[in-house]
Design a binder for these strands. Structure first.
Lengths: 363, 363
DNA sequence: CCCGAAACGGACATCGGTGTCAAGGGTTAC
DNA sequence: GTAACCCTTGACACCGATGTCCGTTTCGGG
């Protein structure tokens, strides 16, 4: 319960001024004997500089914030572990928040971080870009991981082409002729926000091709919030006449994922393969299939996005699109720490199709 | 990028002193018109008090620290979600650290938290009690979750009886006659540290009885670090002549868990049931069994500690001892927030045996 | 031997809040 | 009419660091 020693205590005990102590401890210049004496006294008093004083003086908190939708989603847990590993090796604290995929909670947490003067943030965003405007405006260095914030639904300009989101634009179906103008705008804009993403497009494409190679024609996509890039890649990969009934979404909870999967299987018994856009959705697909007495891979083939430890536990073990969750977190933390002040770069990491036993030839 | 408004800005704009602004915003007394004016100005300037200034003045950081061994262990993720939920509703930040079960990293993280003046901490401890002494001495309010720090191996007093750890003492085999003195000391000591624990003893006992009821005689325990209470409960439940070869440990990593499980199955093909002390160990047991062509539950029955979403995905779905991870985290956070200053209480939450399909009659 | 430059180190302001204290104004009681 | 009291309010010190500014010392060169 004893009071911690302050820089003043050290200064007095060493018979020097506080400024000298500060200089010595932060690597400034000082004569060898002074330095030595100060260090000795500091060690003897077990002095540790208070982050509070320093932070106030420098008007910023060290460390970084981390916002994820849900830690019980193993992928986000892996991501978080990566961030923590990097932060630990840098000796920096990490302030964690879980948003449950709710933009409102996300906004609250951003507010909390601003209040704490946390000026570096790694986030798996749930809200749209305007949720993030306050953070950016306040000068936070934000690195997005796993996905980017969605663009808000526009209010003016060609409402027909931009109704849903840019999904439709990237789709290449809804608006093929009127695309030339918006397209360059869109594609020149992505320079955009610093991020660490997996190469979703390639991952999905590989999976779809793999299923195609097994003879599957009716392939479904089971998506969740934030899977925009994956869906659009899926649409692109399956080609023009996308059967919209085969593209369904859950809201992020396990229950809704199960409902979506179960609904899909029941409404379209003719489908022969499913691509699950995330591990929670994959889990739901396995459960729903079992409940409906569909055997994997005999009755339905399944590819799941995310490699998680339990994918191997299933019978049969699940074929997955692995993305390097831990690496993504580590790299994001590096980015946010490195880019002291200015805008960070973006990184795309490769995915890998890991073939196990959940896909078979078309029945 | 604009500078945030400070309390001084608000004071000037409202034509009052800073003290008045502080009073108004922290619920102190002020005349209605003053209050109104200050609030209006604050809202208009979008003023948010800086946690930095406040923390420095009050010599403490708000919020709490959270230390867990590994977030990719779903149980700890659930625990963390509980803590985050409570903290979020209180508007408090959570500083997270992952220790990888390594006392050294744990000690480092404790140091980091002390530096940050975080004075409330929830921890799943890996180190022994002396790892925690600095934190306690510094006046931190610490609530342990899931387990308590192990007592350091004593250096004096009857070295024979206390060689390994208190495991051996509780064992009741290594030192049956010289036990009377240490025993009351042990059992009167637990008033000890504030904590939120699951009723491991009851959980394990129930599981062992259940397996016994199915006819199993050779039941093994697959443990990990921190499973002391579970092991001792296991020993107690199986009764006196404990077959020590049937009690094996991993070090916490997935690899070592797998090695332990595989070694167990290979060295003792006569065992007919396994109790896995945690979900990582359960996972390892399933994989090892499959690798050795042991079918569950025909060749070997399995009960796993921790209910995790993927337990239902296995074939057959795993029978588990469920402990309320999320609740434990939430309750721990409540405890640590409530007990502003003084010592917190302890809580024990019930476990539940959830019978699914991984246990069958003795082969 | 003296002068200038460079190295060193201490006093002090500062960051953004909170708590203390005393002054001032208004009301009530005697 | 005056004393006693309460309520409101602002000035100011303080928390523990950092950085600026300036005085002092030391050393080398002329």
């Amino acid at each position: 319960m004893e009071r911690r020693a302050t820089i003043k205590d050290v200064a007095e005990a060493a018979g020097v001024g506080v400024a000298t102590v500060s200089r010595v401890l932060s690597g400034g210049s000082a004569s060898p004997q002074t330095r030595e004496r100060v260090l000795a006294v500091a060690a003897q008093l077990d002095y540790r500089p208070s982050a509070l004083g320093r932070n106030l003086r420098q008007r910023r908190t060290g460390g970084m914030g981390l916002l994820v939708p849900d830690l019980t989603d193993t992928f986000y847990a892996q991501l978080a572990e990566g961030v923590l590993a990097c932060a630990r090796s840098a000796g920096e604290p990490v302030v964690l928040g879980s948003t449950a995929g709710d933009p409102e909670q996300e906004a609250e947490l951003i507010g909390m971080l601003l209040e704490q003067s946390v000026d570096r943030l790694i986030a798996v965003p749930s809200g749209e870009e305007d949720t993030w405007a306050p953070a950016i405006r306040a000068g936070m260095t934000v690195v997005f991981a796993d996905r980017l914030p969605a663009r808000p639904s526009p209010e003016e300009e060609d409402p027909a082409a931009a109704t849903v989101s840019d999904l439709m634009l990237l789709d290449g179906i809804a608006a093929p002729p009127p695309a030339p103008l918006p397209a360059p705008g869109r594609s020149s804009e992505p320079p955009s926000l610093p991020s660490v993403l997996a190469d979703d497009r390639a991952g999905i494409r590989t999976a779809v091709r793999y299923l195609r190679g097994l003879g599957h024609k009716r392939i479904a996509f089971l998506g969740g919030p934030g899977h925009d890039r994956r869906v659009s890649a899926f649409r692109e990969a399956v080609g023009s006449p996308v059967d919209e009934e085969l593209v369904v979404f859950g809201t992020g909870s396990r229950d809704s994922a199960y409902a979506a999967a179960s609904g899909l299987f029941q409404s379209r018994p003719d489908l022969s393969a499913v691509v699950a856009g995330g591990n929670v959705l994959g889990e739901a697909a396995v459960l729903a299939a079992r409940e409906l007495d569909l055997r994997v891979p005999r009755d339905v083939s399944l590819v799941m996005y995310d490699d998680v430890p339990w994918a191997e536990l299933c019978s049969p073990p699940l074929t997955v699109i692995a993305q390097p969750g831990r690496d993504m977190g580590y790299r994001a933390a590096e980015l946010v720490l490195r880019s002291a002040g200015r805008r960070a770069r973006s990184i795309v990491l490769p995915t890998e199709l890991i073939v196990r036993g959940s896909c078979g030839p078309r029945r």
